[in-house]
């Protein structure tokens, strides 16, 4: 498994490089979000990461109704609408090609293109700016998404480059990918943060669009065959996967099929992703209840009663 010679020039669609991330692994981290995901979770928090191609985001709260974007659009996909005596730019998504002509012109940063082909070198430069803080806090770099396994060449190179430069690495993944991609990526991963969204395959397919057999298999492979430290994450979605039987089944899987010391992180559902759906002109699931602290505590108690250590939050 040789890395490409010019590995620093490999590129992937990246939609965000976020600094001072405190919930994506130990310490302070810089998180690189790659775009493109094989799953379509109903509650997706980063819907702008679904496709690999660039996507236009619009922020209605910031729009001042000046109309500069409408004039700039080569597809004539933007028109102005009046609502509550305020003018807003409205984009016809069927015409929009996400070319970005409008975003640079917007004086109030109300329009943005998510996703830009970014090289390993560019990511590394950004990560290295914060090296002092990453290292001293016991943190590092995390690849999130989207899905890392969808960009094995790029992720492998980025992870390797981080190690070469003394930066610890983690990957947040749904584990839905090929064995080859896993082999290449995980040899440079210090911590795997792996999602299990549902233990029942049929439910999993209903909620995410894919069954879970491959996922559970890959997680065991990463944990046992590759020996990578693993942390299991359950996005707690009330009414979808938060019932005691699913939580217990997940805990049992961790205890029996992974290792006794693998912890479970329970990530409470939040609605912030809905904003992004709106910005993308999509309809998100807006009927999911946000779990409160006592609900999360109950979930934690269920997992811990199975003898697995659990923590609320990342």
């Amino acid at each position: 498994m040789e890395l490409a010679k010019e590995y620093l020039h490999l590129a992937a669609p990246v939609f965000n490089i976020q600094t001072y991330c405190i919930h994506d692994g130990p310490g302070i981290r810089t998180t690189v979000f790659v775009k493109g995901c094989p799953l379509r979770c109903l509650w997706c928090a980063n819907p702008e990461s679904n496709t690999s191609s660039p996507q236009l985001l619009t922020y209605r709260e910031k729009c001042t109704g000046c109309g500069i974007c409408a004039a700039a659009c080569p597809q004539k996909a933007i028109h102005m609408e009046l609502e509550d005596e305020k003018r807003f730019a409205v984009t016809d998504r069927s015409l929009c090609t996400s070319c970005g002509a409008c975003t640079g012109k917007c004086p109030s940063q109300a329009r943005e293109i998510a996703g830009k082909m970014t090289t390993v070198q560019e990511c590394l430069d950004k990560i290295m700016e914060d090296k002092l803080f990453l290292v001293s806090s016991g943190g590092g770099m995390t690849i999130s998404g989207g899905e890392a396994l969808s960009h094995p060449d790029f992720c492998e190179a980025l992870l390797y480059a981080c190690h070469e430069n003394g930066i610890s690495t983690a990957v947040e993944s749904c584990s839905y990918g090929s064995r080859d991609a896993i082999d290449r990526i995980y040899r440079f991963v210090d911590l795997a943060l792996l999602d299990i969204k549902h233990m029942d395959s049929a439910q999993h397919k209903r909620l995410t669009g894919v069954p879970n057999e491959l996922i559970l298999e890959n997680i065991q492979y990463i944990c046992h065959s590759l020996g990578v430290p693993v942390c299991i994450r359950i996005p707690v979605i009330p009414g979808y996967n938060s019932d005691a039987s699913n939580l217990e089944a997940t805990a049992e899987f961790v205890k029996n099929k992974l290792k006794a010391d693998v912890p479970i992180h329970l990530l409470p559902y939040h609605r912030l992703g809905l904003s992004k759906s709106e910005s993308l002109g999509q309809q998100g699931a807006d009927d999911i209840e946000v779990p409160d602290d006592s609900f999360m505590e109950k979930c934690r108690a269920v997992v811990e009663s199975c003898g697995v250590s659990a923590k609320i939050g990342g």
């Binding site: 976020q18 919930h23 209605r60 910031k62 939040h270 912030l272 809905l274 904003s275 910005s279």
Partner: peptide
Amino acid sequence: VRVAGYSAYFTRLSGAIQDE
């Protein structure tokens, strides 16, 4: 705004979510 595993610029959230 930082919630478990997720960060978002407050000003990019929609009005309803901002209120929340």
